[in-house]
Design a protein around this nucleic acid. Sequence first.
DNA 1: GTAGGGATGGTCT
DNA 2: GACCATCCCTACA
Length: 294
Amino acid sequence: MMAGRKRKSLALTGAAKPLQVKKDHKNPTDSKVSPAELNKDDLQDDLPGDLQGDLQHRLGEEFFNQPCISLAQALLGKVLVRRCADGTELRGRIVETEAYLGGEDKASHSSGGKRTKRNAAMFMAPGTIYVYSIYGIYLCMNVSSEGEGAAVLLRSLEPLQGHPVMRQLRAAKRKEGAQQLKDKELCNGPSKLCQALNIPRCFDCRHLASDPEVWLESEPNTNPPEPQDIVSAPRIGIESHGEWAKKPWRFYLRGHPCVSVVNKEAERQSGNVMNNLGPSDVQSDTGQHKVKRA
DNA sequence: GTAGGGATGGTCT
DNA sequence: GACCATCCCTACA
């Protein structure tokens, strides 16, 4: 539960220096260097002294290399960081995710092992970013996990840092004169978070463990959410996929104001996220038969 | 606060 | 040509 958690009030860090980026690091797909060959130390060697600390809490490849459902839960509470061209850092805590397992999962873009130009990132190394456009005008950001074609959709963030920039980015796509967005409305939806953090389409296929412009961090001195604080509910917007639409593979932090859609029924049923995940759900998670604690 | 409807264009068949 | 892992605005309770 977030109620007792101390919420950070971080000022916009516009003073950070722009990052000098090696060509190979900027877009792993452009080079023969695989994400596996890029690591924290490699990056930190290039960083100015005052930025090296920023990567101290960066999540490495090993974090992403876990089954999809497990990763979807583990991502809750982690912080997505976006470093803009001018050095400004935008930060948001992940409060809602959805697991798309690929293979049997009919709701997944990679169901039946279907591989297209669009979803190629879903088949890349765990931690690869999959950005796709939806309804023509919006973008959604996923993170690939262990398992062929498996990925986790990031649905909502709690804005932590860079609120004015996020508000500006979001306002750019809204009508003039529309009501100013509240903080909790800045990133409470998969496409909203892409707008607010300025995640463009070209981030597709980049790797969160090695990219200089976007990465994930664990918050220091903060415990991961307890199982009873995680609600598991059916995924959103996939009603046409029959039984797969009912799988409780959407995960969010109970009672958090930034969650995009609250499911009261699921909250009643699940005092504990494990109660909603039946044995078949767990077993279908890419070969590993246990859901790790988030 | 919530429900309903329109907008929008990329992707796939 | 149909579908779509969404968002925004308006109207109403």
